[in-house]
Design a protein around this nucleic acid. Structure first.
Lengths: 346, 346
DNA sequence: CTGTTAGCGCGTTCAT
DNA sequence: ATGAACGCGCTAACAG
């Protein structure tokens, strides 16, 4: 008879019995609360390890009579993708509630390290179990993450990571791979010619990573294509339109365009106005209203997408895993880079 | 003060009080168990509707002291993708257990309606809450689904649907869109020439749908490309190799190849042996060992993938939703069609 | 046909 | 520093 099959899950009762202590003591050890002699704690931990005990999150939430709380701090401004992330949070809020989770999205000024730091500092640890941030790589943010973690709030990064910070987890795509993919597609679409690149800002880690990937594949695999120096549109519609228009006007042999940031409404407007949209292969990021329209009209050939809904779902799942308080980082499910053409729009 | 925010979730107690009955009666109505006068049931249902009551699955599972059980009936044979589906079930089994679910994968003979029907018939309704099948569209299967549903087992279809059957839910990609996407890619890669198509079997609904989508886009958008009549490789490695080799040998101007079924190891072998791999643009389905190798070597240009892990996750989530016993079909999360090039392999 | 009650696994007072 | 007892939302065994 198979032991694994037969053996019932270990419960706090089992742990208490094995350790020779009461339920309350087990609970204190499990939740790292004070009031337990080190020797006693050792015995409990030994029992936990030996029995392979895993806390039942649902039962735990049920008993606490309070939902697990999770707040997303998302950049505001005109960036369409951030809007869709916030929308995705609202959508998930309904189903999350059925799993005894309260999730909420708050907008903070974009590209403003101080504002994000203050938003983090303002979170009460008794109210929030976990905070998810979309951050630029700046010192004030790193410090605020550290403080939040010390207060007992699990911090996670979304979309763009903060390696070396106190963040417990990163949820997002592999941005170097995204850049490589864009190059690979542009390369197959364009036999030769010049390729333009528009970034949001080089201060954003995800944008830097995409450019890095794009550059390396273009250089290695497509010698017939020449990369024009990247320009910055700061993720704004108007600025992106101006940059794109300038690129198109300056280079009559422009064969491809890669916008690795936002501001796609401007990109499409510039392409349409130029009258050369059909001749230029375009790759952009994130499936939003403007990129969707661009795909439909043919102005944009391919959109690379990080699936905001999936990302939010993954973040919520990761938060549950963190709430169980395992020591190491829970293995986050990988977020796929979605590739969209006109014909597989969802 | 916002009512929604303030109001606590309704519980069975609230329903019982509002309906003027006991907890046990509420439970009986909720679970469709016998022994309740219609008039009483009405009152309970009215209270449920008025309070907007939703049963807490986790608490329910906790009280039953039995996990929600879910069995996947997956075709056996040499089809690599089915293997990866079964693997995905095993992987998810661990995390599912933490949510009080027991999931299990069983292999049944491929393309054998009788065998699948018998496997379904053999499922004890007291043991299994839900069955997920990957089925061909055949009468014996439809009938067995009907019988299982009557016994009280929720049946779901995976990968390939059975519209018109008693299945409660379908989890899978939009296969027409997949075919359209393949055509769109091939069309952009190939200026002109002949395009070959290899299917598994026209008895499979998903394969028929892919072909339909492929045909329509090729005809509508790429008049320079000529579609050769589809051949069948029956999802077998050897047969697919022979069919591919024949196509390549017969058509010196073969510009593209779309394998909408399995047997990709055979496809790659034929391409390699022909010495013309670099000249032929190839689109295949499902990220498996052979297609991965094909992407790396350059024999395959693009792989369309339905992400077995995501599919299994979605199926498990759908099973939970079904267990809640809502009347209509729960809105299944859409499965994305993944597009993979050498550079965004996961 | 309907109601009472115990208990699932866990957190939390309140005593000791 | 430690333990006993109650309750979270729900199901099921047993009464009536």
């Amino acid at each position: 008879m198979n032991e694994i099959e037969v053996r019932r899950r270990a419960t706090v009762h089992d742990v208490a019995r094995a350790a020779g202590v009461s339920l309350a003591t087990v609970d204190r050890v499990l939740n790292g609360r004070p009031g337990v002699r080190p020797a006693t704690a050792q015995k409990v931990e030994a029992a936990v390890a030996e029995l392979g005990f895993h806390r039942d999150l649902s039962a735990s939430l049920l008993a606490r009579a309070r939902d697990l709380t999770l707040v997303f701090l998302i950049p505001g401004g005109s960036n369409e993708f951030m809007e869709s992330l916030a929308d995705a949070v609202e959508r998930r809020a309904v189903t999350a509630r059925a799993e005894r989770m309260h999730v909420e999205a708050r907008r903070v000024p974009a590209l403003d390290p101080q504002a994000l730091a203050e938003a983090l500092d303002g979170l009460d640890a008794r109210e929030w179990d976990c905070a998810v941030i979309v951050a630029s790589e700046d010192e004030p943010v790193m410090a605020a993450v550290e403080r939040a973690a010390r207060r007992g709030i699990d911090v996670m990064t979304l979309v763009s990571d903060l390696p070396g910070s106190a963040r417990r987890q990163f949820v997002g795509i592999d941005n170097v791979a995204a850049g490589r993919t864009a190059a690979s597609l542009i390369g197959r679409f364009c036999p030769n010619g010049r390729i333009g690149v528009i970034a949001g800002s080089m201060h954003l880690r995800d944008h830097r990573e995409r450019l890095e990937g794009f550059r390396s594949v273009l250089a290695a695999d497509f010698p017939g294509l020449e990369l024009i120096d990247p320009v910055e549109g700061h993720d704004e519609t108007d600025e992106t339109r101006e940059r794109a228009a300038a690129l198109i006007a300056t280079h009559p042999d422009l064969a491809g365009l890669y916008n690795l940031g936002a501001g796609n409404a401007g990109l499409v407007a510039a392409l349409d106005a130029s009258g050369r949209a059909a001749k230029i292969r375009v790759v952009a990021h994130e499936l939003t209203a403007p990129t969707r329209a661009g795909l439909q009209s043919g102005a944009i050939d391919v959109v690379l997408d990080q699936n905001p809904d999936g990302e939010i779902r993954a973040a919520i799942a990761a938060a549950r895993a963190l709430a169980l308080g395992g020591s190491g980082p829970p293995d986050a499910e990988a977020i796929e880079i979605g590739i969209f053409l006109r014909d597989n729009l969802r």
